[in-house]
Design a protein around this nucleic acid. Structure first.
Length: 263
DNA sequence: TCTTTATGGTGAG
DNA sequence: TCACCCTAAAGAT
């Protein structure tokens, strides 16, 4: 489930378990022997997220870079490794492991690796350094559809296919509007919504964009699966606000859902 | 139980 | 534009 919120949450959880601790690292699957050996038995100095990129600091000079891609998982487990575990990290609690499977990227490099990862993406609304001005500037330079621009990690870091659809619904913007033709109010609204929604995603460890009162719940946590989103994967279902059937199209090479009336 | 699909991104052609 | 990476939940049977 990797959009930006997942990675920021992962960094937080990994820090709670491993930051400041001596960590053992291994590659049960075998494809990351050298990298695991490099960070093995070193002190974990902390993890941080840049959009969908996870960066871990070990010892004085070693940097771990992980990108989960579409199918990667990095989860706490116990017992023998199951399946192809690329990297296993274990802290002082030897019964608890963090197992990485199916990542798109898993490398270890020198200190400037962290910098190059940070520089490879645009502003991240979940980081203090993520500035709305950079987002506004990037949007003004794109003639492509806003629905495509929001998937470009150079424009804004951390938004994926679920959030782009949901944010555009919340903002009431048609996905095919050229990014550089949006009003400055619309662009700022998208940024603020992204910031708030991703932050909630980190807190809940899941994507919930609907207002609980609109689906008969009292809290966001009580919303049943299937009622948590406004448009994503709801083709043909009635819009939660106007009952117009949700439409599906392809924008930026990926499926995008929207309400033709509300947007 | 098997098949399909996916919240991502790269690199070849 | 498409194959690929190669997990795992959801859907089909």
């Amino acid at each position: 489930m990797p959009e930006g919120h997942t990675i920021h949450r992962l960094a937080r959880d990994l820090n709670r378990d491993l930051k400041g601790k001596c960590v053992s690292a291994s590659s049960p699957q075998g494809r990351f022997h050298a990298g695991a050996k490099t960070i093995d038995s070193q002190q974990c100095r902390g993890f941080e997220a840049f959009g969908k990129h996870l960066v871990g600091h070990f010892g004085d000079v070693d940097v771990l870079h992980v990108h989960l891609g579409l199918i990667g998982k990095f989860r706490p487990t116990s017992g023998d490794p199951i399946g192809a575990v690329r990297l296993r990290l274990t802290g002082p609690d030897e019964e608890r492991n963090w197992d990485l499977r199916g990542p798109m990227v898993c490398t270890v490099g020198p200190p400037d690796l962290a910098e190059s990862v940070a520089d490879s993406v645009g502003p991240d609304p979940l980081r203090r350094s993520g500035k709305s001005a950079d987002f506004i500037d990037a949007m003004s330079r794109r003639r492509i559809a806003v629905g495509a621009a929001l998937l470009d990690q150079k424009v804004v870091a951390g938004i994926g296919n679920v959030y782009r659809a949901e944010l555009l619904f919340l903002a009431g913007i048609s996905p095919t509007t050229p990014a550089n033709q949006l009003s400055s109010d619309d662009v700022m609204q998208i940024w603020d919504l992204a910031s708030a929604q991703l932050r909630q995603g980190v807190k809940l460890n899941r994507i919930v964009t609907v207002d609980p009162t609109e689906v008969g719940s009292t809290t966001v946590r009580a919303i049943p699966r299937g009622d948590r989103l406004y448009v994503y994967k709801r083709e043909g279902d009635p819009c939660r606000r106007c009952a117009t059937p949700i439409a599906m199209s392809e924008v930026g090479g990926r499926k995008l859902w929207h309400c033709p009336t509300c947007q």
